[in-house]
Design a protein around this nucleic acid. Structure first.
Lengths: 219, 219
DNA sequence: TCATGTATGTTGGATTTCCAACACGGAGGC
DNA sequence: GCCTCCGTGTTGGAAATCCAACATACATGA
């Protein structure tokens, strides 16, 4: 626990907590360090969802089995990432997912009780609230965009939301084409074609990741 | 505030709080009752997001304006519903949505500070955490389903998740065809056609809202 | 310079979805 | 019985997507 300052600093759970107080807060919350080798399960599907985890070092992934027994990978975890918090906070009895180490991992496991009662550090508690709420907003935003029917509608909804967020009709996006296609849930080549069409129609200007909305027609 | 017991009882924020303690908790949190007529704005887009609301009576809707100024309706609110909590908890400065009364409304407005500090009622605080986490899980689940590409994949993903939730290969779903189509983000007639095809292929049995998964082939 | 790899744009055909329209059957009211 | 309404299933053509393949541009390193 002594080394992974950078991972803990990156963890949103300790945002605003002075570095010198983190260790004490961890101790009061009963945080337990643990190590896992590749392939080992940090969380096992079906076990009680009473703890949250923080990945300090290594790489892991969240996965589950569908009704047929096929493994489905839900997300990848990097150092500093928090995991399991939604299940613990929602009060589900048994975890519907597993977390598997893909590289040698160091993690911190903290009982939710520890954060709620023992922590004493209100800031950590508020950060937990904030993490959940922020993820909520991100998911809502993504759903509002991907629930549109056509590639063009999805793309325009995304560009408008980015323009609104930037407060300007010119902005840069944090995706390359493949990443944007994945985010929107569409085919990359169809996305490229649609961007080209919008450009020819004079609806947008674009170059690489830079976009500018021109005519407000075209939705 | 004296009348709307049923709405407050339905509000997940007070789950597990004895009915006789609710009024006192509300007072300590500084909850303020308010009334709004049809068309009046309970929350105004751009104003500070420091309060949460509880709809006690009437009907309202959450909406926002896109980059073009078009109004987009995000959700409908019924008595007992909590609103604005994700924005307040995420610490966004200004609300990105408005909440407009569509019928004469009675609401309770509570500053987030009041819930966090003044409440004194830990249960309310934990409920807030639970509400956010539960919505998180619902959104994640929906996204995992609707991000599939084809109607069949979306439908099967939904049916498998329902089967897993029910713990049985036979189950009933809480949607009619149109509702399921909306949830999956597909065309109703295409959905009906796909259900018929799956039935003829022997993958599922179905009658109205009752489904049964047969062969585990077919995904 | 050349080879290689990566990101992006473009194209054509197969597949799928959407959309509108209609058929069918049951529930309920007259 | 008869009618209407509503939910569901079915169908055919228009439109959009997906997929695979290839072209282009640019950067990197041998």
């Amino acid at each position: 626990m002594q080394v992974h300052f950078e991972a803990l600093a990156r963890c949103p759970l300790f945002e605003g907590v002075p570095g010198e107080d983190v260790a004490e807060a961890l101790a009061r919350m009963g945080a337990k360090p643990a190590r896992f080798g590749p392939g080992e399960l940090i969380f096992l599907e079906g076990s009680p969802a009473d703890r949250v985890g923080i990945l300090l070092a290594g790489a892991a992934r969240v996965q589950r089995e569908d009704f047929l027994g096929n493994r489905e990978i839900l997300s990848a975890l990097a150092p500093g990432d928090l995991f399991g918090e939604a299940f613990a906070c929602a009060g589900v009895k048994r975890l519907p997912v597993s977390v598997e180490a893909v590289e040698p991992c160091r993690v911190l496991l903290i009982r939710l009780d520890g954060i709620i009662e023992g922590g004493g550090n209100d800031r950590v508690f508020l950060n937990l609230l904030r993490v959940l709420a922020a993820k909520n907003l991100r998911l809502n935003e993504k759903l509002a965009i991907t629930s549109r029917r056509t590639t063009r509608q999805k793309l325009m909804a995304y560009l408008y939301s980015q323009a609104k967020a930037a407060g300007s009709e010119a902005f840069t996006i944090p995706f390359d084409r493949q990443g944007l296609a994945d985010y929107l849930g569409v085919d990359r080549s169809a996305l490229s074609a649609e961007i080209g069409k919008l450009r020819r129609e004079g609806v947008i200007e674009s170059e690489k990741n830079r976009f500018r909305l021109l005519n407000v027609e075209g939705m």
